[in-house]
């Protein structure tokens, strides 16, 4: 009955479009990532460049993936660190 009244008065009754939008958003994250497999590779190369300024990392063991469950998608990176560079302290204090 309440739903009927809401409909009659034009209030947000079902709001099922929000469900549609959310499902679409998630599915597109996957679609767009899989359409361009180079994307992850490019991201990986650029990440290495940035991180190497601060740390020695094991590039070959580096892993980057898009993980997802029902409600969210996450970029998960596993980056083994072999050692820290001394330059970090200079950067931190020197500015």
């Amino acid at each position: 009955m309440l739903e009927f009244l809401n409909r009659v008065f034009g209030r947000e009754a079902g709001g099922s479009k929000n469900v549609a939008k959310e499902r679409l958003r998630l599915v597109l994250v996957h679609d767009r990532a899989s359409v361009s497999p180079q994307l992850l590779q490019t991201l990986k190369t650029e990440l290495i460049k940035v991180i190497e300024k601060y740390m020695d990392i094991d590039e070959d063991a580096l892993e980057i993936n898009l993980d997802s469950n029902e409600t969210q998608v996450a970029l998960v990176a596993s980056i083994p660190v072999k050692g820290m560079k001394r330059v970090t302290r200079h950067l931190a204090s020197g500015i």
Partner: peptide, 8 residues
């Protein structure tokens, strides 16, 4: 769309 049941 007005009722929020279709994407705008």
């Amino acid at each position: 769309v007005r009722h929020g049941d279709m994407m705008s």
